[in-house]
Design a protein around this nucleic acid. Structure first.
Length: 406
RNA sequence: GGGUGGGUAGCAAAGUAGUCAAAUGCGGCAGACUGUAAAUCUGCUGGCUUCGGUCUUCGUAGGUGCAAAUCCUACCCCACCCA
């Protein structure tokens, strides 16, 4: 298959949201300009039900490459997920069943649909599962695979080095994670691997293996990761439950973006929207000159991202809702309804029962902090007993609401 | 196999018999402020409670003692050094 050669677009692909390309950007550019269709893959371990907008960055780039005519392969790490990437503590603990994997994969592909045309007729995305080959390897093959690396080389990985220094355990099987991921590249016979900045080591292991087994050069395309400007921690984390997930409702997604630190606005535009770099640059200048309220820019960001996954109408709705709740401090359009059988309630019991608070203790604390409002009136007496009325609205904090129905 | 040091709340980490539901930081929640669910500041961050308390929790299981995260015994797990 012939590919489309659009140098301007290729230049953008090679620079937008890119940390590094190995062996070099120039070499990959040459390949992309050659007209040859490349096999480009990204791997993802289906450890949870949701992808976040950090993952999405990669798929947005892949879609551009797919449109140029390159073959995109999404590798589902159903085998590797069970071993767990050493960087991801939680995944090491999770014992996934076959059904979990299937279920997670299904929801993932659905979440990706808005940003990558997986089922495109002309150039569909290939979905591969590494259980298909990794589970069938013999011990001999594994030993052979392992003989491509030295222990010293493994220990160079930043996080192994870190654990060594901190006298924390490094399990032998953890060394196999990069080997497995690397072998995926061999099996799929890929030309390019795309990954986030934290996957560099694993991807490089694949480079070595592709060189040895296939005698060819695999490119590694490393993309940016969003981090907290102060703590430098990852902002998007499945394990910590922080971040903006693609399966969120339009309202939550919009709000989630509004809660991102202002410092990350520009990077989020670059990584998570389809907006042109020229336009993003304008925004960047506005922010630097302080000629616009960052809030307004962030509203635009939230709108753009929400639009991508939920459509323009739903994004507008989310924006309106946000304004209503946080600027005008009004009540949202729709709130969960609590159908009550009783009329009399102790407030803390009600909060706990409706899950507005996770326990009675928390309910009490929230009331004491002045976080609880009933029909617009702040209640500070945690011990109070109340009579429910139809359509009574209970508000906890800024974001949690419930409507009573008798 | 031997020696030494460890295993503490969502995470990191202090505490080494009573003043420990356990310092501090991160994360989370709330309040103030702000045309942001940003930043900053403040408070909260085990369950139940008749608000007096009470129950469960510091690797696991036993034990000593009025009292244990803290001492003893056994076991499980980890790191470092030696072999």
């Amino acid at each position: 298959m012939k590919t489309i050669i659009d140098e301007k677009l290729i230049d953008e692909i090679l620079s937008r949201s890119v940390v590094e390309i190995l062996p070099s950007k120039e070499k990959l550019k040459k390949e992309l300009l050659s007209g040859k269709a490349l096999r480009i893959y990204i791997g993802a371990d289906p450890t949870g039900p949701a992808l976040h907008i950090g993952h999405a960055t990669n798929y947005i780039i892949l879609e551009k490459l797919r449109k140029l005519g390159h073959k995109i392969i999404i590798l589902i790490g159903d085998f590797t997920a069970r071993i767990g990437d050493p960087t991801d503590k939680s995944s090491a603990r999770v014992q996934l069943t076959r059904e979990d994997v299937v279920k997670n994969t299904k929801t993932w592909l659905k979440q990706l649909k808005p940003i990558i045309a997986i089922d495109d007729k002309k150039n569909p995305v290939e979905i591969a599962y590494n259980h298909d080959w990794l589970s069938k390897m013999s011990f001999e093959e594994i030993i052979k695979l392992a003989s491509n690396f030295t222990v010293q080389r493994m220990l160079e990985r930043d996080m192994f080095a870190k654990r060594l220094k901190e006298e924390k355990p490094i399990y032998l099987h953890e060394f196999f994670y990069p080997l497995m991921q690397g072998f995926d590249s061999v099996h799929l016979d890929v030309d390019v691997e795309m990954c986030g900045n934290d996957q560099k080591f694993n991807a490089l292991a694949g480079r070595t293996l592709v060189q040895r087994y296939k005698n060819k050069e695999k490119f590694v395309f490393i993309t940016t990761l969003l981090e907290n400007p102060i703590t430098k921690e990852k902002m998007m984390s499945k394990s910590q439950g922080t971040g903006i997930f693609l399966n969120m409702s339009n309202i939550d997604m919009f709000g989630g973006i509004m809660s991102q630190p202002d410092e990350n606005i520009v990077q989020l535009f670059i990584d998570c929207t389809l907006m042109s770099l020229e336009e993003i640059n304008k925004i960047k200048n506005q922010l630097e000159e302080k000629s616009v309220n960052p809030r307004d820019i962030k509203m635009r960001l939230a709108f753009e991202i929400t639009k991508l996954y939920h459509g323009e109408k739903a994004a507008q709705e989310a924006e309106d809702e946000f304004n209503k709740i946080f600027q005008k401090r009004e009540l949202p359009e729709n709130m969960p309804v609590f159908k009550s059988k009783k009329e009399k309630y102790k407030l803390i019991d009600l909060l706990a029962e409706t899950k507005l608070a996770s326990s009675k203790g928390e309910a009490r604390r929230l009331i004491e902090q002045g976080a609880v409002e009933i029909d617009g009136q702040i209640i500070k007496d945690w011990n109070c007993e109340m009579k429910l009325k139809n359509k009574m609205v209970i508000k906890v904090g800024k974001r949690r609401f419930i409507k009573i129905s008798l």
